[in-house]
């Protein structure tokens, strides 16, 4: 009889993630129910103050803004990524196109944000271009609003959406589309009714891969947003930790983001299960 070495193999990984990931997350959870210390940190006294603070109009406004920005960015990303992935999967130069999509994706995240600062800034590329062309007299403020944040978020996470879509569309049997068309469905109709249900797993992954990071976005709104309608939950966490030193409130906000993320993931698991069940039903 061979011995079961499974636990031995996974022990280092298991210990590492328990100590450095699970324990810290549990600490954040605990901290969110404690009193704030005078100069940062916490006082070991139970308190719901942090959650009560969330009912303030300022916080609710930021919560709604964060929701709207990340939903808008997700929808836009998906609308762009679907045709792209479709084209890539059907083309003959798949690996070249994959390569082209991945290059900007591997360019440093901050450099990508910086590129947009350089383009959209008050004395940036676009303003200079428009002024030289005589279209405008004074510069237009493109940055520091919700649209700048949305554009840069789409830019940052687009490849994350294209890749899973590409890999499901590539496996899709395109003769089904031809069959649908032979039976008289229009081109958009065949895509909507035949292809979309078949690549649902890819669509859901693409949505998650953009929604989750954009909902917790911090660097993008910090650098190209920050206005009244472009300050997001991630910025609250950073400000509460680093500036206001209200750790319980930062923790509670983190818990809120974690819950929304987990809910999104839960929907994903459910969708996958029902898809698997539907596939099973089809077989039997």
């Amino acid at each position: 009889m061979k011995k079961n070495h499974g636990l031995l193999y996974t022990l280092p990984t298991g210990l590492w993630v328990t100590v450095f990931f699970l324990v810290p997350v549990i600490i954040v959870f605990l901290y969110s129910f404690l009193d704030r210390g005078e100069r940062g940190g916490i006082v070991w006294r139970f308190s719901l103050e942090a959650y009560r603070d969330m009912a303030s109009p300022t916080f609710l406004h930021i919560l709604v803004i964060t929701m709207l920005i990340s939903l808008a960015a997700t929808v836009l990303t998906l609308l762009v990524a679907l045709p792209c992935a479709y084209y890539m999967a059907r083309s003959k130069r798949k690996s070249l196109y994959l390569f082209l999509i991945i290059i900007p994706f591997l360019t440093n995240f901050l450099i990508r944000i910086y590129a947009w600062q350089a383009i959209l800034g008050n004395s940036g590329f676009l303003n200079n271009l428009l002024i030289r062309a005589g279209l405008i007299k004074n510069h237009i403020q493109f940055l520091y609003n919700e649209w700048a944040v949305i554009i840069v978020l789409v830019y940052s996470y687009l490849p994350y959406a294209i890749l899973p879509l590409y890999s499901t569309i590539e496996k899709f049997d395109f003769s089904l589309l031809e069959a649908a068309r032979d039976l008289g469905t229009s081109h958009p109709g065949s895509i909507l009714r035949v292809m979309v249900p078949n690549i649902r797993a890819g669509i859901v992954s693409a949505v998650l891969f953009t929604f989750i990071p954009t909902f917790g976005a911090y660097a993008v709104p910090k650098l190209v947003g920050g206005g009244k309608n472009s300050f997001m939950l991630g910025n609250i966490i950073a400000d509460e930790i680093l500036v206001n030193r209200n750790w319980p409130f930062a923790s509670a906000t983190s818990i809120l983001i974690t819950l929304v993320t987990t809910a999104a993931l839960g929907l994903y698991v459910l969708a996958n299960k029902s898809a698997a069940r539907a596939a099973q039903r089809k077989k039997t």
Binding site: T10, T13, G14, V17, T18, F20, F21, L22, V23, P24, V25, I27, V28, Y31, L208, I212, P213, F215, G216, A217, Y218, G234, I237, A238, I241, W247, A250, S251, S254, I257, T258, T261, L265
Partner: peptide, 25 residues
């Protein structure tokens, strides 16, 4: 199941959550 779940979680939580919890830790 435990190892599988916990070790994949850092992948799905937003970065800022991991950053904050590690800082506090």
């Amino acid at each position: 199941k435990y190892v599988q779940t916990v070790s994949l979680l850092p992948l799905v939580l937003p970065e800022i959550i991991i950053g904050v919890s590690m800082l506090i830790f």
